[in-house]
Design a protein around this nucleic acid. Structure first.
Lengths: 333, 333
DNA sequence: GCAGCATTTGCACACGCTTGCAAAAAGCGC
DNA sequence: GCGCTTTTTGCAAGCGTGTGCAAATGCTGC
């Protein structure tokens, strides 16, 4: 390792002709320093290129300023968008993001998380697919604040941010009925995430209120390929559905492509489709998918605001609304 | 902030009946401890739930174990895939990733980077779009190792990982000629990234060798929308191109959609298209885009291997090959 | 000038860890 | 058992910072 020599507060103090504590205080908002010395310190620091060592500061303050983002399927459009928004907000709040990838289901997940705990992260935001309760407990047990996005496991003391999936699902039923559809289907993955299941159950419930049954097909993980497989199953039935609500835009894209290119169905004339997430691809002119936009900006803002507030942060549950974006995959928008 | 009390090495030492140094050594690979005491320590640590405090360790060792990933456009398919691979490899190597988002072009980029330097990151990997030299210099000046992916600015002491964009570009010309195309065009963004420019220049050079001119159109940032705009410009020319090489798959998707839905062209019969990156969407059946796959796994592995090697790591330049993936957007694959 | 007060400042200790150094223990050949 | 070498252990001095406390300084009103 190359010898790295950083300037320390001592050197700054010497150059500014003050004590080392003065330097420390100059970099601590709200500390007791006169403006005169603060200026002297800041100038000396500037000249020397001094940067407060956050490892040492974290050690003293018992507060590292690190927030760790625990996420699987980072490369997925929805997740990566949320990730972008979160890192942006964190940076604005003066925090720093540590990224934990839980794609590998072997022990490396836990190893990575322990790694983060060793850095004494102040908080964790979980937007991971796998609902591994042991992970969340490990976080809380180590005194971190915890934000759970779209997973309503009842973890007391944490901030839960969820969408009103039921309400959204019922709006889809209304839309489908208005489009004159009657053979409803739901396309899901086998992930079994709380929010995915809520969309499914909400859809079924709302359909039943209108006296309609719903065909449910689930397959694999929540991606494009799964959409194709589900399409295969749904569109070869004797009673072919004329409306499919997909738990996810990726599923919807896969299903849509299969419906068009494999079954030569035209959308929305022969088949109406609604997705969820409003990923970028949903607006591409090959899809023009009617879907729900998650309030990603608001989610990120709420999360960061909660975890960077002072004092004791008590558990809270936040339910946000998803916005229905009308495009061309449902008749009669 | 909730009172967080972690168990310290002292407590472990007491419980195991050894000195604090013994605990420290038990957690340091290659340190001088007998197996007997190491076992005693590990057991006591297990029982107490002890985790080495990496802030303190980093302070002592002058080596934090933190690698910071500096990236813009995180939500983009190619970037997020690379990000996934990098975090995975880093975790495997026992390092931890700090994510710096440089999307905002205002001062927050530099502020975020300084933030990372304050945590004494050992290394930075730059996969950011903006070629801000001041950033890279700041990293090097603070003694970090530096990995630059797809940006060949000559930064001595860093590891440069690049693709052979020229070679790839020349293969595209060959493919287009074999498909019987003669009116070649190149679609680019205005980002001006070294790798994007290399694709453009390589394409032009290779075409000229075959006695062909290339129409070049650039617009905006490297995304879907830009592809549509460029399509607008290219496909309304009197001499409409019959083959377009797009600097990026996103551009290609936008261009393809516009060509089909707006200009009613059929691909590849009336227009051949080649992209770059092999993002997931390129394989979707609405596109089936012929494109180049970046060896993302290899890039990540090389990067992590280089930055986690012991001793002095001297600058190095690595050129990898992109794999041409034949799909259906060029005639005669 | 002085008492009385608020504001600044420096000292010194703490944070939790690593590591050089010397002392202690263990191993070995006889 | 004794000398010798090798391994293991504990001590203590750091790493760069924050902060309580007491001393010092600066004000104010008389």
């Amino acid at each position: 390792m190359s010898q790295r020599d950083f300037v320390s507060a001592d050197e700054v103090a010497r150059r500014a002709g003050v004590s080392r504590s003065a330097v420390s205080r100059a970099f601590t908002p709200g500390a007791s320093v006169s403006d005169a010395t603060r200026q002297k310190v800041l100038q000396a620091a500037e000249e020397l290129g001094y940067q407060v060592n956050h490892l040492a500061r974290g050690l003293m303050r018992n507060e590292s300023g690190i927030v760790c983002l625990i996420v699987s399927d980072v490369a997925t459009p929805y997740r990566s968008t949320l990730l972008r928004e979160l890192t942006l907000q964190l940076q604005l709040a003066g925090k720093v993001a540590m990224l934990i990838n839980t794609d590998r289901s072997d022990g490396s997940v836990n190893r990575a998380l322990e790694q983060a705990i060793r850095y004494r992260a102040d908080a964790s935001v979980i937007l991971s697919g796998l609902p591994d309760k042991s992970i969340t407990e490990l976080c809380l047990r180590s005194g971190q604040r915890l934000v759970l996005i779209n997973r309503d496991e009842d973890q007391s003391g944490a901030l839960h941010i969820n969408l009103d999936d039921w309400e959204a699902a019922s709006r889809v039923v209304t839309a489908f009925m208005r489009a004159g559809c009657s053979r409803l289907a739901f396309a899901n993955s086998e992930a079994g995430t709380p929010s995915l299941m809520a969309r499914e159950e909400g859809f079924i419930a709302a359909a039943r209120e209108h006296g309609l049954d719903v065909i449910v097909e689930r397959h694999g993980s929540t991606g494009y390929e799964a959409g194709r497989v589900v399409a295969q199953r749904l569109l070869t039935r004797k009673e072919r559905p004329d409306a499919v609500f997909c738990a996810t835009d990726l599923l919807a894209c896969g299903l849509m492509d299969a419906a068009r290119h494999q079954f030569s169905l035209s959308i929305p004339q022969q088949l109406c489709i609604v997705g969820f997430d409003d990923i970028e691809q949903a607006s591409w002119s090959s899809y023009r998918l009617t879907t729900f936009a998650q309030p990603i900006g608001a989610i990120a803002r709420e999360a960061v605001a909660w975890l960077s507030q002072g004092g004791v942060a008590d558990g809270r549950s936040l339910t946000l609304q998803a916005d229905l974006i009308w495009r061309d995959s449902v008749r009669g928008g």
